[in-house]
Amino acid sequence: MSEPIQFHFNIDGEDFTSAGKASVQVKKLLRQLSFDADTIRRVSVAMYEGEINMVIHANGGQADVIVWDEKIEVILADTGPGIPDVSLAMQEGFSTAKENIRSLGFGAGMGLPNMKRYSDDMKIDTVVGEGTTVTMSFTVPEG
């Protein structure tokens, strides 16, 4: 594999108005790098869900996007509360979000299932009380 291009973003957990900004940025960057529309959409939607999760559930964190010609990896790391039961959290409709989050349009319990569906591989490393790291990879179709 050739040398990857890397992008790093600090995700602010205090300011909901900026939630999703990094993912919009990544979408623009991937467009500039001329990836196909489907790959760009899969990567940016999955990252967007993960970015929002870090803001609403974990008080922010760090996002890294590593881009090769044939593969894109998104790593979202936070030092939030962690996820006590990952398989439960992965179920469609499961959410611990309160009414204030739901009134902002999030908390349907669809984010993690969406991330799983849009990525080709997703790994969740989480320790209760220490934080969560979600690693997603996306295979870029040839041609």
Binding site: F16, V45, G105, F106, N114, R117
Partner: peptide
Amino acid sequence: DMMSDVLAYVKEQAVLLTGLINLQV
């Protein structure tokens, strides 16, 4: 009014109707 529901559909969607008015929309 639930953004993750919108994001769940894989097919081309061109118009979003919503009662929410924040930047995330």
